[in-house]
C-alpha cells in the first residue's frame, strides 16, 4: 500500500496543439473509428486503403492493420459483431485510440521513436514508436503524419515527443 500519486504527472488530455520545436502535435477528433476483420476485408472495403507511408484523404478511409484487419476512419456506423453475409467482425473502437496529427519537421521526431523511413514502405500502419503500439501513416499532403495510440498510453506518447523535441 503505497501512495504513488506524486510520481505520476496528471494526464493532460490535450485539446490544443502541443508545440514540439519545429514540429507540432495536434489532437484530432474523429467521428468514428471502427475495427473490421475478415478473411477478405482488404478487398471488400470501398474506402481508400492506407498503408505506410500512405496518403490518407481527409474524410473517410481504411488504415490497414493486418492482412485481415482494417481500422475504418469516419466510416458509416455499422452494427458491432459478426456478420455472416460479409464474413466480417466489427467493433466500435472510437474511444480506444487517441489520435494526433504531427506536422512540421516530423521525421526527426519519429526517427527518435523507431527505425523508420518513408522510403521503406509497409503494407501495415501498425508499428511500435518509443516502444508503444501505434498506427502511423501520412495524410494526402504527404507532410502530416497521423498517429493512433491506445488511449491509456496517449500521455506517454506525448511526453516521449516532448522529450525528443527537447534535444533539438
Amino acid at each position: 500500500m503505497r501512495d504513488d500519486t506524486a510520481l505520476w504527472d496528471a494526464p493532460r488530455n490535450p485539446a490544443t496543439p502541443i508545440s514540439l520545436g519545429p514540429a507540432r502535435l495536434t489532437p484530432v477528433h474523429l467521428t468514428r473509428q471502427t475495427l473490421v476483420s475478415g478473411p477478405n476485408v482488404l478487398q471488400q472495403t470501398d474506402l481508400p486503403l492506407v498503408d505506410w507511408p500512405g496518403a490518407a484523404p481527409s474524410d473517410a478511409y481504411a488504415a490497414i492493420l493486418r492482412r485481415d484487419r482494417l481500422l475504418l476512419v469516419n466510416a458509416p456506423e455499422t452494427p458491432d459483431g459478426w456478420n455472416d453475409t460479409t464474413q466480417q467482425a466489427t467493433s466500435d473502437v472510437t474511444d480506444a485510440y487517441t489520435v494526433f496529427d504531427l506536422t512540421g519537421d516530423a521525421l526527426p521526431l519519429l526517427g527518435r521513436g523507431a527505425e523508420i523511413t518513408p522510403d521503406i514502405p509497409s503494407r501495415s500502419t501498425a508499428r511500435q514508436l518509443f516502444g508503444l503500439g501505434v498506427f502511423l501513416y501520412r495524410m494526402e499532403d504527404a507532410k502530416t503524419y497521423r498517429l493512433h495510440v491506445p488511449r491509456a498510453h496517449a500521455e506517454a506518447l506525448v511526453t516521449h515527443f516532448e522529450k525528443a523535441a527537447s534535444h533539438g
Binding site: D3, T5, P11, R151, A152, H153, A154, E155, A156, T159
Partner: peptide, 24 residues
Amino acid sequence: KQLWNPLKRLALEPQHRAAGAALG
C-alpha cells in the same frame, strides 16, 4: 522514470484525483 515502463492511464484519472485518490 515515468517513461521507463509507462503505466496505462484511466479515462477517469482526473475524477479520481479530484476525489482525493491515492494512486498506485
